[in-house]
Design a protein around this nucleic acid. Sequence first.
DNA 1: CTGAAAGCGCTTACAG
DNA 2: CTGAAAGCGCTTACAG
Lengths: 313, 313
Amino acid sequence: MTTLIDVARRAGVSKSTVSNVIRGSVFVSAKTRGRVEQAVRETGYRPNIIARSLKSRASSTIGVIVPDLRNPFFADLSVSIEEVAYELGYAVLTANTECLPSAEANAGRALIERRVDGVIVAGISLDSSLPVNLLDHDIPTILVTLSGLDDSRFGVIDHDDESAMEAVVDHLYQLGHRRLAFAWLPVPEHAGERRRQGMEAALARRGLMPVRIDDGPTAIVGHNDIQAIATIDRLERAGLDVPRDVSVVGYDDVPLAAHQRIALTTVRSDAAALARRAFELLVNAARAGRHVAYREIQPNPLVIRRTTGSAPR
Amino acid sequence: MTTLIDVARRAGVSKSTVSNVIRGSVFVSAKTRGRVEQAVRETGYRPNIIARSLKSRASSTIGVIVPDLRNPFFADLSVSIEEVAYELGYAVLTANTECLPSAEANAGRALIERRVDGVIVAGISLDSSLPVNLLDHDIPTILVTLSGLDDSRFGVIDHDDESAMEAVVDHLYQLGHRRLAFAWLPVPEHAGERRRQGMEAALARRGLMPVRIDDGPTAIVGHNDIQAIATIDRLERAGLDVPRDVSVVGYDDVPLAAHQRIALTTVRSDAAALARRAFELLVNAARAGRHVAYREIQPNPLVIRRTTGSAPR
DNA sequence: CTGAAAGCGCTTACAG
DNA sequence: CTGAAAGCGCTTACAG
């Protein structure tokens, strides 16, 4: 592959000069610049970012850790991060972990070894040491849809699950539901745990306790939309009707939730907005060579559709 | 961050020796190895893969270009690639392009500049020069669910859309459908184009022509499941019933297709298998320093569910 | 079995 | 405005 030297030789200048015109950082005379640009064109030269990174100590790459990329919410988040990232010349290394500690460890190692300029964590197992580990390796780290990790060096862009769960429970309570269950992933993960707690707290305020999912709930609150949609499938295969027999609520408002045949009542979360905000904060911190150390919590509205109805009597 | 030198100093050996134990490539005495390993542990040293890459001319990173990561088929593909990749010490740089030429150009530049060891292209706009460009930069490139690009240096892992479309048309024809339309993305993309052509050919064999989607088809074949599911939504919002009034067929068999409320007739494509095969071939080529130059076509079965029925009369 | 030396392809002060 | 020199953190023959 052609290198800076090839270009320099061809243009009859030094490699410093070629570097200067390519990065556009220093003033170069129009004539020299022209010669260099032509040489670049003729050779099809593309700078080797690996070499640049080694010297400049910035990889122009960020890492994104997601628990489940097959969930459109995380796909949306990750794609939205990518969009803004590529615009600013960053590439993104994605790692899908399913909250498996071994996958998380692998991902962490890969990101640290590649000296990513920052990482966005959108889900991690409950007692993972990875996020703090990143911080300790001087990698700015931002937690998205995830809080409860207590280090002030983190950036946190989160939504308010607690008040969202209050709205969900209120909605169901008003429809007459008293037997609510929470359907969550088999993985101990932050967002799920927090939503479960939020629901329990909202129930407690009404003098209620959650029931187990197999204990005949009249309403089921899913950890997320995918979970809720799968719950509908399970219920209807068992001969029950949603919402006549059981109401179901999701979380995220993925595009499918609005589909005629699904029409899921859910909490709307704007993955793209979360992504953009997180990336912006992360890049600013990375460029300044500091941690993000900033928190922001946004409210999420309840979207009522047709999977919730009056409690059966 | 600690470097090889720090570890070497601490262990009282040279950096060559540290390098040797870390890579495990050369025989090192147990005693020396022990000292080095302890120093690594004490310092929390993680090798800088950027520096390694520069010297060894292998980035241990591959690129994946997908047209739409929000489509669970591509999410599955990309996650499956990642799984095998991380196992072998590779990281993956994902680029979601939506078949936009500008996004494709950005992604191509980013991957070339980062000297990825190979790339898997799972969708690209019809006349993109990117795939050949990668090849010309000596980057082994494999096309997945995509053929028609005529360079023998490509690897191609594909499925047989033509015979799948024959099966789809046969199924609908036997149900009495004569007015079939194809619903596809607004983007000129390979897989969509090829499926459209496959359907047209199958119709032609029966003396039929496709009708336009607004021309009252009794059956609509989607470019993929997401397209088909969106079509169902559109039809039912317009007061039509699927399949009573219109039958709908998808492609991919994403998990949602099997959902009670969707029950989509579709063509099954195994993203995970495709991904594993592609990665395996790619890595072998990359390590051997050659192009993949290999093609493999697999058949895809039709899965009949409940979105197809007898043609209305 | 271990170490000294060169070099991967850039960037970055610093002279001139 | 342009260039020579040093160096980023590794790997890789090659001696010893």
